[in-house]
Lab assay of single mutants.
Amino acid sequence: PKDEAKKKVKEAIKRGDEETAKRIAKKYNLDWDDAKREADEER
């Protein structure tokens, strides 16, 4: 599900692992900028 994928993307971003985050986002066709902004807001 997309929500689960987005959570994984945000967790990867918070760990500083943007490569993984981008790969997950691409795989699930998520909006990378959107997920990154959300992760930054939660930090």
Rank of each mutant, 00 (worst) to 15 (best):
A39V: 13
K14L: 15
K8G: 03
A21M: 00
E42G: 07
D31Y: 02
K14F: 13
K7H: 09
K2V: 14
R15H: 06
R23Y: 10
E11F: 03
L30Y: 03
D31L: 04
D31A: 05
T20F: 10
E38C: 09
A35Q: 05
K27G: 02
K10M: 15
A21F: 00
I13V: 03
A35N: 04
W32H: 01
Y28G: 04
R37K: 11
G16I: 01
K6T: 06
R15W: 05
A25I: 03
R37G: 05
K27W: 11
K10D: 04
G16S: 02
E19S: 08
K26S: 10
A25D: 00
K6S: 06
E19C: 11
E38S: 06
E41P: 05
R43F: 13
K22I: 08
E42L: 06
W32T: 01
V9K: 00
R37M: 08
E11D: 13
K14T: 07
K22E: 04
K14M: 15
P1T: 14
V9D: 00
K6N: 04
A35D: 02
E38Y: 05
D33W: 09
G16K: 03
A25E: 00
I24E: 02
K26D: 08
T20G: 09
T20Q: 10
A12V: 02
E11S: 06
D40F: 13
A35P: 02
D31Q: 05
D31M: 03
K6Y: 15
K27T: 08
Y28A: 09
A25N: 00
D40W: 13
A25R: 02
T20K: 06
D3P: 05
E19P: 05
K8W: 15
P1A: 14
D34V: 12
E18C: 15
P1I: 14
R23L: 13
K10Q: 11
I24R: 01
D40Q: 10
K2P: 10
V9F: 11
E41I: 11
K8T: 06
I13F: 07
L30G: 00
A12I: 03
D33I: 09
D3M: 11
I13P: 00
A25V: 03
E38T: 05
D40V: 09
A39C: 05
R15K: 08
V9R: 00
V9Q: 00
K36R: 09
D33R: 04
K27C: 15
K7T: 10
L30V: 14
E38P: 03
R43E: 13
Y28T: 01
R15I: 06
R23Q: 12
D40R: 07
K22P: 00
R15L: 08
K7Y: 12
E11V: 04
K2H: 12
E41K: 09
R43Y: 12
A5Y: 11
A5W: 14
K26E: 12
E41N: 12
K36G: 03
E38I: 05
E11T: 04
A21I: 00
A12C: 11
E19V: 11
E4Y: 15
R23K: 13
A5K: 03
R23G: 05
K10I: 15
R15E: 05
K14H: 12
V9W: 06
K14Q: 13
R15D: 05
D34F: 08
R43I: 14
K2M: 14
A21P: 00
I13M: 08
I13S: 01
T20R: 07
A39W: 09
I13D: 00
K6V: 10
D17I: 01
W32N: 01
E19M: 09
N29F: 06
W32M: 04
A39K: 03
A35S: 06
A12N: 03
K6W: 15
